[in-house]
Simulated scan of single mutants.
Amino acid sequence: MKGPGTVELRDIEIFLTLAEELHFSRTAERLHVSPARVSQAIKKQERTIGAELFERTSRQVALTAVGRQLRADLEVGYRQIQQAIATASSAARGLTGVLKVGFSSAWCGNLVVRAADRFRARHPGCEIEIVEMPLHDRFGALRAGDIDLQLTELPVDEPDIVNGPVIYRDQRALTVPAGHPLARRESVCLEDLASIPLITITGPPQYWLDAHLPHHTPAGRTISRGPATIAWQEALSLVAAGKGACPTSIRSARYYARPDLAYIPFLDAPPVEFGLSWPSTGESVTVRAFVGTLVETADEEGPT
């Protein structure tokens, strides 16, 4: 039974929100209640406590000394209650333990970190570990169970791996030495690949290499090969040394900027896509929940 001095948890939420907003209408809008409900809750608490919590004028709302003390005393306990409820809810839905997420590029890593922060806040019983994926081994960590899902360049065409949503579709660009004639161009086309060797990557499946490092231009001209590497930073160093060029996403111009490199956008090449993937036997409630959180985070940020 409720005693005469009982204050509902919802009323505490209303008080703390009003203490932050200092505006009845904004508080009501934020909590999806009416301004009258906010006013009623505050008056009820003031009657219970026996003192005014807010000073109200036609121009402003301000906490009284009693209100400031109550806010300080309530905030810690209220956060603990919220976290306890969130933890119990996550456990009931199976959202506990460690989820290991891989990424292949700086912008994908940044997005995963932001999504992980949001996910931890929602599901305190679940921890996220973030791992950078090697360029040469696209699926080894997934198959070994070292990670649970990854955000990497497409395509992925593996019978034991699920393709999830595409997160980024970026304009394709060509990385060339800063002193190369193509570096003075505002754009390039696929036919230009016949004029410079491509740095190759050792390790990925042939279909992945064909998608990113073609052997012929659309007109059938041969695209020669430069040195091979297994690491992205080494590929950039080979380009800077004049050993060839390397196709990439236009975002690389911002995330991997170097004075000895130039990133020239393609006019006629398909976009570079980055998508989520996970083992076909590894889809769990936690994986599905994190995929939803990551998509939500990416959608809110929009193109960057």
Rank of each mutant, 00 (worst) to 15 (best):
M1T: 07
K2S: 02
G3L: 14
P4Q: 13
P4E: 10
V7D: 00
L9C: 04
L9W: 04
D11S: 06
I12T: 01
I12Y: 01
L16W: 09
A19E: 01
T27L: 02
R30G: 10
L31V: 06
V33L: 08
S34G: 07
P35S: 04
P35C: 05
R37T: 10
A41T: 09
K43E: 05
Q45F: 00
E46M: 02
R47Q: 11
T48N: 04
A51I: 12
F54Y: 01
E55F: 13
R59F: 00
L63D: 08
T64Y: 06
T64M: 06
A65L: 03
V66L: 05
G67M: 05
R71Y: 00
A72K: 13
A72W: 01
Q80H: 05
Q80V: 07
Q80Y: 07
Q83L: 05
A92F: 08
A92S: 12
A92N: 14
R93I: 03
G94C: 06
T96R: 08
K100T: 14
G102R: 10
G102F: 10
F103C: 05
F103Y: 15
S104T: 07
S104R: 14
C108I: 03
A116F: 12
R118M: 10
R120F: 02
A121Q: 12
A121G: 04
G125R: 11
C126G: 01
C126P: 13
E129T: 06
M133E: 05
F139S: 08
G140H: 13
G140E: 03
A141E: 08
L142K: 11
G145R: 03
D146N: 15
L149G: 09
L149P: 10
T152D: 02
I161E: 03
V162Q: 14
V162I: 13
N163A: 11
G164N: 11
Y168F: 14
D170E: 14
R172H: 00
R172I: 02
L174K: 00
T175A: 03
V176N: 00
P177G: 00
H180L: 01
L182K: 02
L182I: 03
A183N: 05
L190A: 08
S195G: 12
I196S: 01
T202P: 01
Q206H: 07
Y207G: 08
Y207E: 13
D210R: 06
H212R: 10
H212S: 00
H216F: 02
P218S: 04
G220Q: 10
I223M: 06
R225D: 00
I230V: 12
I230Y: 14
I230F: 02
W232M: 09
L236C: 02
L236M: 10
L238F: 07
L238C: 04
A240D: 01
A241N: 07
K243Y: 03
A245W: 01
P247D: 03
T248G: 02
T248P: 00
R251I: 07
A253S: 07
R254D: 06
Y256S: 10
A257T: 09
R258D: 09
D260G: 02
A262S: 11
Y263T: 11
L267C: 05
D268G: 07
A269F: 00
V272P: 12
F274G: 06
F274R: 12
F274K: 14
S280P: 01
T281S: 04
S284I: 11
V285R: 14
V287P: 11
A289R: 10
F290Y: 08
L294R: 14
V295A: 09
T297Q: 04
E300S: 12
G302M: 09
G302R: 15
